[in-house]
Design a protein around this nucleic acid. Sequence first.
DNA 1: ATTTAAATTGAACCACGATTCATAAGAACT
DNA 2: AGTTCTTATGAATCGTGGTTCAATTTAAAT
Lengths: 209, 209
Amino acid sequence: MAYEIESLNSKKSKKRADLTKAAIKTFAQKGFHRTKISDIAKKAKVADGTVYLYFENKDDLLIKCFEEMLTDLMEKADQRLQAIEDPLEKMLNFIDLHIDYCEKNRDAAKLIIIELRQSPEFYEKYPDFWPIKNYLNYLTKLCKEAIDAGRIREVDPDLLTTIIFGSLDFSITAWLLSKSTIDLKRIRNGVADILHKGLIGDTNNEKND
Amino acid sequence: MAYEIESLNSKKSKKRADLTKAAIKTFAQKGFHRTKISDIAKKAKVADGTVYLYFENKDDLLIKCFEEMLTDLMEKADQRLQAIEDPLEKMLNFIDLHIDYCEKNRDAAKLIIIELRQSPEFYEKYPDFWPIKNYLNYLTKLCKEAIDAGRIREVDPDLLTTIIFGSLDFSITAWLLSKSTIDLKRIRNGVADILHKGLIGDTNNEKND
DNA sequence: ATTTAAATTGAACCACGATTCATAAGAACT
DNA sequence: AGTTCTTATGAATCGTGGTTCAATTTAAAT
């Protein structure tokens, strides 16, 4: 009995997963507004009406996609960063993780970085739903820890978060638009370097940590 | 005769300007997709059809808005930066200018930063039209000059552009979403400080490397 | 096997809003 | 004043696509 219910649930949740997967891909490729529900239904091999058995409407579907992606991303982050003790290393690893995730999930990246940005429509409709808030807070926490541990000098952690995230965000935007010809690894190193050492200092003499 | 034609033209171009002004405001407030042509027409006090005497269609109108704003911004930049000789000062002034412009033209800022970002639709439809390209190139040029003059150490100017612009862009996004409670001046100083001195180097912290 | 319930279908509905166009108003010129 | 050309109007058109729901299939329960 329990078995049957579980099997049913997993069948249901499989279809749900199929739908969000199809939705993420399609939203990323065509943009939210250009995507028809029927596009998603076709890609997930279900009828149009079926979408409405799993999601309230098109907006809801998009939000569920965001939630899924960001939960996934946060879990991966938590998991990887736990092993590291040095707070500065944690910060740098967070950056790497963000970049890795985007490189490996181009569609998700496009959604988070481009479609999510566009949706003041959404913030206004769902006032408490500013989906990357948690993610940003996480980075801010890492910044604070690095400061408290004396690994970097005392700067405003919120500000630092903004600079780091803003730099990454814009780099990745450029990368997405460039059709991936830009080398994100090089960017990551450059960002880390400039943030770390600043713009003044040695001209082309390099030291390593 | 020439006078009459001119007067006619200026009447026409006044109406055109009224329309872009109304469009910028409305697009900024409601977002491109949520804005109806009739909204813009009403705000500009003309009939719906009149919009189509001045612009090809809704997309075209948005593009013309971008062009107008960015031209305006570039002119202001050129004008102000000519007076300055020190390349590093030029860079910092560019940042100030960008922030000032956004503070004083909230609607324009919202359009450039949020709506423009969202429109891969547009890049794909109009392949050579990535409207802030010129603006970014301008900043890159300033970075190069500051490097060549030895005012900052040798870093990749494109990368530096990305970091500066990305930081500003994201800060201003946060500012726009925060309903302007954030202090952009403070952000500007913070960004300049961190970029300038980097994250290491002790101020009043006990520990360092 | 039969009944009952759940899940799925996809054609039809319907609201919405960009765009058009026949008509009117206005301006310039003779 | 009348003619012509330009500019403006806004109601009607028309395609689009999100959403619904009666009908059908599939699965569970008795």
